[in-house]
Design a protein around this nucleic acid. Sequence first.
DNA 1: ATTTATTATCGTATATTGCCGATAAACGAT
DNA 2: ATCGTTTATCGGCAATATACGATAATAAAT
Lengths: 112, 112
Amino acid sequence: MGVARTRGTGFAAEVVRTARWGRALAHPARVTILTLLAKRRTCVCGEIVDDLPLAQSTVSQHLRVLREEGLITGEVDGTRSCYCIDPEQIRAMMADFSRLGTSLEREAACGC
Amino acid sequence: MGVARTRGTGFAAEVVRTARWGRALAHPARVTILTLLAKRRTCVCGEIVDDLPLAQSTVSQHLRVLREEGLITGEVDGTRSCYCIDPEQIRAMMADFSRLGTSLEREAACGC
DNA sequence: ATTTATTATCGTATATTGCCGATAAACGAT
DNA sequence: ATCGTTTATCGGCAATATACGATAATAAAT
């Protein structure tokens, strides 16, 4: 999706942050990668590729998105790359979602 | 982002659902719209437009995305449209996010 | 030094997103 | 019937997203 001209401008900071988390999760591959990294202790890129119905290069791109959003960290280990979830950022994301949730559930009554 | 050829195929149903929620929240305008609808009792489209730094047609598109994802409901009221949050779906979204969160926080230790 | 293995990046094609102005559609009011 | 208001949709444009194969780049192994 095109990052629009107004993206990130004219919106509250917390809203922009929440939208970034949303974008990070906006593809099944990325959600799957996160759960894989949480499930396994090992975090080698190749295994992730094996578990996804996507080409290696495509998985690498999804990993980069997750890294750019801060949800995972990548570390080079010889010829391979070791990816790990960043628990701090996961908690931050969930906190933002949680804040949004309570904010949205506060007044659920509809006047229509 | 382009809905890719493999989107929704080869991924677990819950993962796909979570990714759709993420996509719904993936733009600051849509997050803002949701919070606006929660804050106010009234849900007329025009007011939403007034509160966003976007053209009316653009806001209408964002409203459509939120409606397609089921987070809001639209109802025609004479010449205007009344949009409301769907509390049931909001709860469903938050439940999915919550499930994801606990799943991701379970094993946060990184072996790297 | 050469090969093998692993991963990131490049190049490219296609689809989607997001934005806007303009227009259509629907309704209420005059 | 006509006008004004409100909203949805259309058309077009630029930017991203997603996918893949191919190619670098790096390190381990022979």
